[in-house]
Design a protein around this nucleic acid. Structure first.
Length: 723
DNA sequence: GGTAGCACCAAAAGC
DNA sequence: TGGTGCTACC
C-alpha cells in the first residue's frame, strides 16, 4: 500500500506506534527494540501518508549525534537530501527560540551561551562577591545545586523562600548572585536554554501563539532523560492533549544525578491524560541469553512499568564471569580474551570494554598498550575544554560581546602583556567602586589611580580589542581568525619544540579548520561568529568519535545508545557498581539500570569480570562481588576463577572467599567440581578452575602448580580427587 | 610577571 | 597512583 512499505519494515507494535493518529502517545521502547526506526518512520509516515507539512514537525533528542542520525535516516527514507522538519537537541531548539524571540524577555541580542567551565568561573565569582569561601561551599556542588533548581524552573526568589538551613540560605544567596552576573555578562547557561523558552511561551501570549501555531507534531526521544523543565517545555509547546510521541525506556534512565526525572515516563499520563501507551518488546540486537540475564537483573527494580524483551535470534552462548585477583589480573584477562576473539575472526571494532569509572580505564589501557592491541578510549579530555581552545573562544566572545566579563578576564593577560595579578586586582576594585564593567572601564580610560605602566598596558589591550572588532566587521570569519592570531601573538605561547607546544599548535590549527565551515567569503565575520560560538557551545567531542579504530574502551554512561557484538563489563564489585556513593534505594536502582544498559549493549556475547582486591585512590582495598551478580540468573553464567588466585599463599583465603559461590551452570560432576583439588599422573597436583559440560565428557580447566592452566577432558585425564 | 613544586583529591557527563 | 589548582619563590 504505502510508498514507505511500513508493513514490510516494521513489526506490529512498531507499526501501531508509527501510524498512531492524533493525541499523545508514550512508546516504551526496550533496549534494541528499534526506537529510532519508529521515530524516523513516524516522521516519514506523517509527511508522506498524512500529508503533514514537514515544517510543522519537530523531533527532539538529547545528543547531536542522535539528532544527526535521525535526520539522515529520515532523509534516506524519504529520498530527499534536505529534510524540512526540525530535528535537533532540546538545547538547540531552545537556543533557536531565544535567538529569534529573546528580546521579548529582555535578553540582549548576541548573548553568549556559557558552558560548564564558564559556569564554574561564575559560581566562584559569586562566592567571592558574597564573601563565602570555596572550602565550605565547593563551587562544583553549588553549581549542581543551582542547576538542579533551574531545571525545576525555580527562580532565585522562589528558591530562597524554601531555604531553611544555613547552607540552603547561603546557596540561595549564591544562586541570586550567579543569575545577576550571568545577566550582566549577557549570557545564558544550558539550563536557561530550556527554562527561558518556557518563560517565553508562558509570559508572551502572542509569541506563544506563533510558536505553537507552527507546530503540529512533536516527537521526543529518550524521554526517560528529561527533567522537569524539559517536560514543561514539551507541554507548553504541544499541550496536554497534543500530538506528542514520547519514546523512552525507564530501565535505561541513568541521568538522575543530572536532574532527569523518571516520573516523566512512569507518570506520563499525569502530564498527558489521554495518552496511549505502547511497548516495544521485540529485541533485534541481542541473544535471548543476554536478554534473560539483563532482564533478570532489571526485574529487581521497583520503579518501572515493566517489559519483557524477547528475540527470535536464539539463545546464544552463556555469559562468562571472570573473577580476578586484582585489576591488573582483570585487565590481562579482558585483553587476552579479546585477542583470542580477534584471532577467531572478530574485528577489533566489534569489541566494547565498559567500566563504571574513568579510573578503571587505566589498568586496561596499560594492558592494551603493552600487548599492542588497537583501541580507542572514548570520552576523556574534550577538544573544546583544552586551555588553548578556551582561550581562543574567549577572544571570540570578548570581541563579539565585550560585556562577557568571564571571557574578558580570561584573555586580559593571555598571552602575558603586562596586566598581572596586581593590576587585575586594582582594576577590579576600581570597576567595583565606579560601578563599571571591565570593558566600560577600559573605554572610559580613567586610569589615574593606576601606575603609569599598568595604564599603558591596559590601553594597549583596549586598542587591540577595538582593532579586532573592526576586523570582525570587515573580514570573513576565517581571515579574521588569522588576523586575531597575528595581532595577539597568541601562538608565541607555544613556540617551543617540545611535544606539549606542538600539540597545542596543532589544536589551534584544528580549531581554525573547524571554523572554516562557518560563514562564506563575502560575509562580515560577525554573523558567522555567533553561529560558530553557538555551535561550539552545543557540540561535544563524543560527537566526532568513529567506531572503526579498534577495541572501544569507555564508561557505561558513554556506552548508552551504542552496541557491540562482543561486550566486556569490568569491575562488578560492591563499591564500583553499585558505586559507593550510591546509598539511597533510588541511587541503587540507577546503578542497576547502568549495569543493565551496559549488558544490553551486547549482541552476541557478554563477558563480566570482578576483582578480589583493587587499587582505589592509590591503595589496595579488598573487594566484594557486586550484589547485582546474584540477580543475574546463575544458569546463564559460566564462572572462571583466575589461576592467579591459586598461586602461592593467597590460595587459601581466595578459595574460601570464592567458595561461597559455586559455578552456577555446572551440574554436579561428582568429585570433579570447580574448586576441588585433583592429582594428575603426570602433571601432579592441581585445582579445578572450571567445568564445562558434565559426566565423562566434561571439559575441565585445571590449574597445575607444575604446568599452569590446562584444559582436559574428564574421561581421558585420569584425574584423582584429593583433599 | 612567570613558574616550580606541593597539597589536595578521586563518579558518571549530555547540551 | 595521577592530575590539577594554588602558593611560594625566583
Amino acid at each position: 500500500m504505502s510508498a514507505l512499505d511500513l508493513e514490510g519494515r516494521l513489526n506490529e507494535a512498531q507499526l501501531a506506534a508509527v501510524t498512531h493518529g492524533e493525541g499523545p502517545q508514550l512508546v516504551l521502547a526496550g533496549a534494541g527494540s528499534g526506537k529510532t526506526r519508529v521515530i524516523t518512520h513516524r516522521i516519514g509516515w506523517l509527511i508522506e501518508e498524512m500529508g503533514v507539512d514537514p515544517r510543522a514537525i519537530t523531533a527532539m533528542t538529547f545528543t547531536n549525534k542522535a539528532a544527526r542520525e535521525m535526520e539522515s535516516r529520515v532523509e534516506t527514507l524519504l529520498r530527499t537530501d534536505r529534510l524540512e522538519s526540525s530535528v535537533g537537541t532540546f538545547h538547540r531548539f531552545g537556543l533557536k527560540l531565544l535567538r529569534r524571540f529573546g528580546e521579548r524577555i529582555e535578553l540582549k541580542r548576541g548573548f553568549t551561551v556559557f558552558d560548564d567551565t564558564d559556569q564554574i568561573a561564575l559560581v566562584k565569582r559569586s562566592l567571592k562577591d558574597e564573601g563565602l569561601d570555596e572550602g565550605s561551599f565547593p563551587p562544583r556542588t553549588m553549581l549542581s545545586r543551582i542547576s538542579d533548581a533551574k531545571s525545576r524552573l525555580l527562580t532565585p526568589a522562589a528558591h530562597a523562600a524554601g531555604a531553611e538551613t544555613f547552607f540552603e540560605k547561603r546557596l540561595a544567596q549564591v544562586f541570586r548572585r550567579y543569575e545577576h552576573l550571568l545577566q550582566r555578562s549577557s549570557a545564558v547557561d544550558f539550563d536557561d536554554l530550556i527554562g527561558l523558552p518556557v518563560r517565553l511561551l508562558v509570559e508572551d501570549a502572542e509569541i506563544g501563539r506563533r510558536i505553537r501555531g507552527g507546530l503540529r507534531h512533536l516527537l521526543v526521544d529518550e524521554f526517560q532523560d528529561t527533567n522537569h523543565a524539559q517536560l514543561r517545555l514539551v507541554r507548553e509547546l504541544i499541550g496536554p492533549g497534543g500530538n506528542i510521541t514520547a519514546v523512552g525506556d525507564e530501565d535505561q534512565g541513568i541521568y538522575r544525578w543530572r536532574g532527569a526525572d523518571l516520573a516523566n515516563v512512569l507518570e506520563f499520563e499525569k502530564s498527558f491524560p489521554d495518552a496511549v501507551v505502547r511497548k516495544l518488546e521485540q529485541n533485534y540486537r541481542s541473544t535471548q541469553t543476554i536478554l534473560d540475564a539483563s532482564g533478570g537483573l532489571i526485574a529487581h527494580n521497583e520503579g518501572r512499568r515493566g517489559k519483557r524483551l524477547w528475540t527470535d535470534r536464539g539463545a546464544g552462548d552463556p555469559l562468562e564471569l571472570f573473577r580476578a585477583r586484582d585489576e591488573i589480573d582483570e585487565a590481562r584477562w579482558v585483553v587476552r580474551t579479546a585477542r583470542q576473539l580477534e584471532a577467531e575472526g572478530a574485528r577489533w571494532s566489534e569489541i566494547g570494554v565498559l567500566v563504571r569509572t574513568n579510573a578503571q580505564t587505566r589498568a586496561l589501557e596499560e594492558e592494551l598498550l603493552r600487548t599492542e592491541t588497537p583501541y580507542t578510549l572514548v570520552g576523556g579530555t574534550r577538544f573544546y575544554q583544552r586551555a588553548e581552545i578556551r582561550d581562543l573562544v574567549a577572544y571570540l566572545r570578548a570581541i563579539g560581546d565585550p560585556r562577557d566579563q568571564i571571557s574578558m578576564e580570561r584573555i586580559l593577560n593571555q598571552p602575558p602583556r603586562g596586566i598581572g595579578r596586581k593590576t587585575q586586582r586594582l582594576v577590579a576594585t576600581e570597576c567595583e567602586r565606579q560601578g563599571l564593567t571591565l570593558w566600560d572601564f577600559l573605554v572610559v580610560d580613567q586610569f589615574e589611580s593606576l601606575p603609569e605602566r599598568s595604564a599603558k598596558a591596559l590601553r594597549r589591550f583596549r586598542d587591540l580589542l577595538q582593532a579586532l572588532q573592526g576586523d570582525l566587521d570587515q573580514l570573513p570569519l576565517v581571515a579574521f581568525l588569522d588576523q586575531l592570531l597575528e595581532r595577539t601573538g597568541y601562538l608565541g605561547l607555544f613556540a617551543g619544540d617540545d611535544e606539549d607546544s606542538r600539540g597545542r599548535r596543532e589544536n589551534v590549527g584544528e580549531f581554525l579548520s573547524a571554523a572554516q565551515g562557518f560563514g562564506g567569503e563575502s560575509e562580515s565575520g560577525r554573523v558567522s561568529l555567533t553561529e560558530l560560538l553557538d555551535h561550539i557551545a552545543l557540540v561535544s567531542d563524543l560527537d566526532g568519535w568513529k567506531v572503526e579504530r579498534g577495541v572501544s574502551l569507555m564508561t557505561l554512561h558513554s556506552a548508552k545508545g551504542l552496541e557491540f557484538p562482543l561486550v566486556f563489563v569490568g569491575g562488578l564489585e560492591e563499591g564500583v557498581i553499585p558505586h559507593y556513593n550510591a546509598k539511597e534505594p533510588a541511587d541503587i536502582e540507577e546503578e542497576r539500570r547502568l549495569l543493565y544498559v551496559g549488558m544490553t549493549r551486547a549482541e552476541r556475547r557478554l563477558f563480566l569480570s570482578s576483582c578480589l582486591r583493587r587499587r582505589v585512590a592509590g591503595r589496595f582495598q579488598d573487594q566484594r562481588p557486586s550484589p547485582f551478580l546474584d540477580e543475574i540468573p546463575s544458569s546463564l553464567v559460566i564462572v572462571h576463577d583466575s589461576p592467579s588466585l591459586f598461586e602461592g599463599e593467597r590460595t587459601r583465603g581466595a578459595a574460601t572467599f570464592f567458595g561461597r559461590q559455586q559455578a552456577p551452570s555446572e551440574p554436579e560432576s561428582g568429585k570433579l567440581a570447580k574448586g576441588s583439588r585433583v592429582r594428575h599422573p603426570k602433571l601432579g597436583d592441581g585445582v579445578v578452575l572450571s567445568v564445562e559440560g558434565y559426566g565423562d565428557g566434561a571439559k575441565l580447566t585445571v590449574f597445575f602448580a607444575s604446568a599452569g592452566k590446562r584444559k582436559l577432558v574428564a574421561k581421558f585425564a585420569n584425574l584423582e580427587s584429593i583433599s
